[in-house]
Write a protein that binds this DNA or RNA. Structure first.
Length: 516
DNA sequence: CGTCTTTGACCAGCGC
DNA sequence: GCGCTGGTCAAAGACG
């Protein structure tokens, strides 16, 4: 309820004392707020605008005239006003006229009280209404935010579908769609003997239509995760046991960040379930799983980079099957967007091989890059390198843990927020389906033809945003926020859903000598 | 006492 | 089949 402050204009001492002394309410006890004409002290005090502001029974304040007599006024000696009035009366000697005057004043006060009570009542109602409206708006806001997020996902899916259609029209060579086929139909011979259409747009559309059903997949630990809901939908149809294919399940997002802190909180809760020494890295690799919800399939690996142990490499796998706290959403969206790009590229590709021409343009040695895609890794992995300041970013040269030789890099071409970035990423991933199978065939790469509609795009805009994001990252100790800023910059603020990254790794973990 | 971490054991995939 | 490696399990201990 609105609480009205009497403020500095209220002289609480006198009326309070009076009220304590007399069980009968005396309107003149409100001397401090009596109208000027009622106050003999000459002070221009205002009428108390609100009397009983908190009691619904304030109307009971109405006082009958007959309750007031001159004797009453005389008794209340504690009231300055009354004292003065008595003095005035004694000077005039006209008691009856004074009573009449007090009666008229009382009537005025009563009327004012009624007005103020009515006003108070209106204010109460207004407050209730505002409060209710606020609550309703709050609910609507939450709902809109959810719808907005879903809408962005759908938009991305539509863009992906359009891109896929374009690719289907452009690609005439017979190419296996391993990545998609593996997820939609499992590893069947079909994936390698796909018709010359390259892309089965009808099937792609069908996959896209699966939207809304694939969220369920997140409930299965083996489901393909690491992506926003839309991505798994595209990649993995429901009711397909093949969706549990280990390869697809291993789609990963790796984040490199320079951090001396033993642990970086991203809002999610993680439970360490294992630690092992990995080949080629003196630092042990810690395994975590999300414990924010039972059955959440999200896992992550944390390991310090062998080349620079000040760099924490966190690799995420899976999609949360539960709501995320705000603190976790940023990271989740970031990694999810990256995974979305990766998978969207895989989806848009009609084959499993890289296009050397594309790579030649996508990979610009010496140029900045924070995103790379590993084709040599056992699983499709997109790596976000947040360890380099602007203009000194380096492409990632290997998957973080396995110590493999330099993988294929993807540098987002220019001036391209989400759609273009995704297109470029998709193109870069166009032929990377094979990396899901861990063995990338260079021989096949050389024979591939790719659409390159994105390759000529200028780079300055993206570079600028990238530099800004990187600067924010390097300056911001809040890894999560910084990472979110970076990806938002890349993705044009359309980063979708949810995969959470968290560096819960701690120094103690590295003291262990658990090895095999 | 419940939760979390530690860590040795176990399993699966892969190459030889 | 064997060894290597990555990944996971689960008992035991630590911790609050």
């Amino acid at each position: 309820m609105t609480k009205f402050s009497f403020g500095p204009t209220l002289d609480t001492s006198e009326p309070l004392v009076l009220l304590n002394k007399s069980s009968r309410w005396n309107p003149f006890a409100m001397v401090p707020n009596s109208p000027p004409h009622a106050a003999a002290d000459g002070h221009d005090r205002k009428v108390l605008s609100e009397m009983d502001l908190f009691s619904t029974k304030s109307n009971s304040l109405v006082v009958k005239k007959e309750d007031f007599h001159a004797s009453d006024l005389d008794v209340n000696t504690g009231l300055d006003l009354l004292t003065r009035v008595s003095g005035d009366r004694s000077s005039t000697g006209d008691v009856s006229s004074d009573e009449n005057r007090y009666t008229s004043k009382l009537a005025k006060i009563q009327s004012e009280l009624e007005k103020t009570n009515l006003e108070n009542q209106r204010l109460k109602e207004m407050y209730l209404q505002v409060s209710n409206n606020y609550s309703a708006l709050q609910v609507q806001f939450v709902a809109l935010m959810q719808q907005h997020e879903q809408g962005m996902r759908n938009e991305i899916i539509q863009k992906q579908d359009q891109k896929v259609d374009n690719l289907a029209q452009q690609v005439s060579v017979a190419v296996p769609r391993q990545f998609m086929e593996m997820t939609s139909h499992g590893s069947s011979s079909e994936e390698k003997t796909l018709s010359g259409s390259g892309l089965n747009t009808a099937e792609l559309s069908k996959n896209a239509d699966i939207d809304g059903k694939t969220v369920r997949r997140e409930d299965t630990p083996d489901s393909n995760v690491w992506t926003s809901n839309k991505v798994p939908r595209l990649v993995v149809p429901e009711n397909n046991e093949q969706t549990n294919d280990a390869t697809m399940r291993k789609v990963r997002v790796s984040v490199r960040a320079r951090s001396e802190a033993p642990m970086i909180t991203d809002g999610c809760q993680w439970r360490k379930y294992g630690q092992k020494m990995a080949k080629g890295n003196p630092c042990p690799r810690a395994y975590y799983r999300c414990t924010m919800a039972t059955g959440c399939p999200v896992r992550k690996q944390v390991q310090r980079w062998a080349d620079d142990q000040t760099i924490l490499v966190t690799t995420y796998e899976g999609t949360h099957n539960h709501p995320l706290p705000p603190a976790a959403v940023a990271m989740a969206s970031t990694t999810s967007a990256a995974a979305t790009m990766l998978l969207s590229g895989s989806m848009s590709s009609s084959d499993g091989y890289m296009n050397p021409n594309l790579l030649a343009q996508a990979i610009r040695p010496g140029s900045s890059s924070i995103a790379s895609i590993s084709a040599s890794a056992p699983f499709p992995t997109i790596t976000l390198d947040l360890t380099h300041p602007p203009n000194t970013l380096q492409t990632l040269n290997a998957t973080p843990f396995e110590g493999h030789p330099p993988s294929q890099y993807f540098q987002p071409p220019s001036a391209m927020p989400l759609q273009a970035f995704q297109q470029a990423g998709a193109a870069a991933l166009y032929n990377q389906s094979r990396f899901s199978g861990s063995q990338f065939s260079q021989d096949k790469i050389s024979n591939q033809v790719l659409p390159q509609n994105h390759q000529s795009q200028p780079q300055t805009s993206f570079t600028n945003s990238l530099s800004a994001a990187t600067a924010a990252i390097t300056a911001d100790p809040n890894f999560t926020a910084a990472l979110a800023a970076a990806i938002t910059s890349i993705m044009g603020g359309n980063a979708g859903a949810i995969t959470s990254n968290n560096n819960n790794d701690n120094n103690s973990a590295y003291n262990n000598t658990h090895d095999h």
